[in-house]
């Protein structure tokens, strides 16, 4: 057995120390980033997955990953973009294999039909159907396009979208126009003009 001498600390302190010892970043950065972006990311993921509990799990997991693997990321902008990118990809993965959501929607649909008046039940079914269609099309888009549409649907301004995606503000309009065109093309290809 070779002797290795190391200085170690408990896990939590270690993670925070690593944040603190980086170039110009620290635990305060992490806290700021978390407080500023966690609600937005959760909201974005909730739109994407339709499951708020699951979206909170994904968002928490992403921030947990960030606390452990910040090393390759240089600036705060890059950290923000990384968080949103990883969260979007995880949300799309969850959307594509979301049996729990489908089950919940089916149960909710059955319950809605059972309890609601006839008109309300029909409206609810139609709305659920439209949501399912939108999510199916989002799942087929490139992650960057889906992310762009979700961020805008979340009410974020171009400057905030640019920060979240790690792109110049001047590029947001072009990328948004292309994402919308791609969304419309795929939506019409699947469902025709019945929008």
């Amino acid at each position: 057995m070779s002797i290795v001498i190391r200085s170690v600390q408990p896990t939590e302190e270690l993670a925070l120390d690593r944040l603190n010892t980086g170039k110009g970043r620290g635990a305060a950065w992490f806290e700021t980033l978390f407080h500023e972006h966690y609600p937005r990311i959760t909201s974005m993921l909730a739109r994407l997955t339709g499951d708020r509990g699951q979206s909170e799990e994904i968002a928490a997991d992403v921030f947990c990953k960030l606390s452990r693997h910040w090393a390759p990321l240089e600036g705060k902008g890059e950290l923000t973009a990384w968080v949103y990118r990883v969260a979007t990809n995880a949300g799309l993965d969850a959307l594509r294999s979301n049996s729990r959501r489908r089950r919940r929607e089916q149960e909710a649909g059955v319950e809605a039909i059972r309890t609601a008046p006839v008109d309300g039940a029909l409206d609810g079914l139609l709305r659920d159907e439209r949501c399912a269609r939108v999510r199916e099309v989002l799942a087929t888009l490139k992650p960057r396009d889906a992310q762009m549409l979700l961020l805008r649907a979340n009410g974020m301004a171009y400057r905030e979208v640019a920060e979240a995606m790690g792109i110049p503000t001047g590029s947001v309009g072009t990328m948004l126009a292309r994402a919308e065109a791609e969304f419309e093309r795929k939506f019409r290809a699947r469902y025709g003009d019945s929008v």
Binding site: T42, A46, R47, G50, R133, V134, L149, A153, V195
Partner: peptide, 14 residues
Amino acid sequence: LMQELSADVPSAAR
């Protein structure tokens, strides 16, 4: 279409 998704999600847990 994207706004449809907001009606589908229960109120935000802030």
